[in-house]
Amino acid sequence: MKPADRLSEFVRLSLAQGGDAQTIRAALGQAGWSAPEIEDAMSGWLPGQPPVPRPRPYASAQEALLYGLLFVSLGVVAWHLCQLGMGLIDYLIPDPGEYPVAPGSSERWSIAALIAFTPVFVLLSRQVARLSRDDAGRRRSLVRKWFASLTLMVAALVFLGDAIWVIYALLNGDLTLRFICKAALVAVIAALVLGYYRDEMDG
């Protein structure tokens, strides 16, 4: 039995025997358990006869597949939207002295990826929303929170990288209209990703 499980079982038995929460905390502290460990174990049970277990986070291999596919499809869609937008900006706002370059294989590849992955992302998003609506306990999924945290970290890093990119161009005197449009495109896509996961860390 894991130490955390042993601790939780001790709390359950103590509460079942009528032990006071403060007395249990004091006994565990004297035994050498840390305050966060004690609070985590105590929060798992609602005092009563018998003690009632509180809902706990969980992990599921099936949900790892679901949220992993959702994470990958969101990343592919965001990346190729950005690539397609960059190509469009290059075409609409060419550098002075350059001829506009018509969309080529890179843009066609992005369009193909969007056609393939956008329906996957939409379907998975609807499935996740339906599962959460039908069973609020799904929001306690550790896998869900891990992928949400990873996505938010990547989006935040993109925001910071975009800001560094803009500041460097400004200091270097290269802040052109085309550059501003590209930086704005990256910021908007990162903001949309952040908005999509804005409430995933709650609950």
Rank of each mutant, 00 (worst) to 15 (best):
V154Y: 09
S149M: 12
L175Q: 07
S34V: 04
A35H: 14
A41E: 07
P96Y: 03
D174S: 11
L123H: 09
F117D: 15
V52N: 02
I38F: 02
A156T: 09
G104C: 00
V76F: 09
V101K: 05
P36V: 02
A116Y: 10
L152E: 14
S132P: 05
V158Y: 08
R133K: 08
W45F: 12
P55G: 08
R126E: 15
R126M: 12
P96V: 06
D174H: 13
V158H: 01
V101E: 13
S106N: 11
G48R: 01
P100L: 02
L171K: 07
L66I: 07
S105T: 10
I89L: 04
S125L: 12
G32A: 01
P57V: 11
G75M: 04
D174C: 06
C82R: 01
L81N: 09
F147P: 06
L66D: 12
V166S: 02
M42R: 03
C82A: 11
D134G: 11
A64T: 04
W45H: 10
P103E: 07
L88D: 13
R138Y: 06
V52W: 01
Y168M: 02
L157E: 13
G87A: 10
I89T: 06
L74P: 03
G75H: 08
V52L: 07
M86A: 10
Q83E: 15
A129S: 12
R133Y: 12
W165M: 08
M86G: 08
A148S: 10
S43C: 01
